[in-house]
């Protein structure tokens, strides 16, 4: 078992998440894709931690989790707000800045 396997998996999940962000119109699904990307990054961090034999990578992953949690809270609140005022959770509907 080599760390490369985990890292490849991490890269794959990250790319899938990124594609999700670009493809989906539902803001909640976009958000979930972002979470997927964060998790992929966490997997890489944890792998690095084990690879180097110290815990700093895990600490990083821990902080990523905390920040992600905060982000989810605020992001979902914003989605709820937008939904309330526009009755839609589609990110494409929020294109009013364009002339």
């Amino acid at each position: 078992m080599s760390p490369e396997n985990y890292l490849h998996l991490s890269a794959l999940l990250f790319t899938i998440g990124a594609c999700g962000v670009l493809l989906r119109r539902n803001a909640i699904v976009v958000f979930m894709s972002i979470e997927l990307m964060l998790n992929a990054a966490n997997l890489a961090l944890v792998t690095f931690s084990r690879m180097h034999g110290n815990l700093d990578g895990q600490i990083m992953a821990f902080f990523v989790m905390v920040v992600a949690a905060a982000e989810v809270v605020v992001g979902l609140a914003i989605i709820v707000m937008v939904y309330r005022s526009r009755h839609s959770a589609s990110v494409d509907d929020a294109s009013l800045m364009k002339l």
């Binding site: 119109r25 494409d92 294109s95 364009k98």
Partner: peptide, 17 residues
């Protein structure tokens, strides 16, 4: 140049990506 600005967040995200 404005024509490239379509106002869709996903389009901008693609650029960032």
């Amino acid at each position: 140049l404005r024509k490239t600005q379509n106002g869709f967040a996903r389009s901008y995200a693609a650029s960032m990506f």
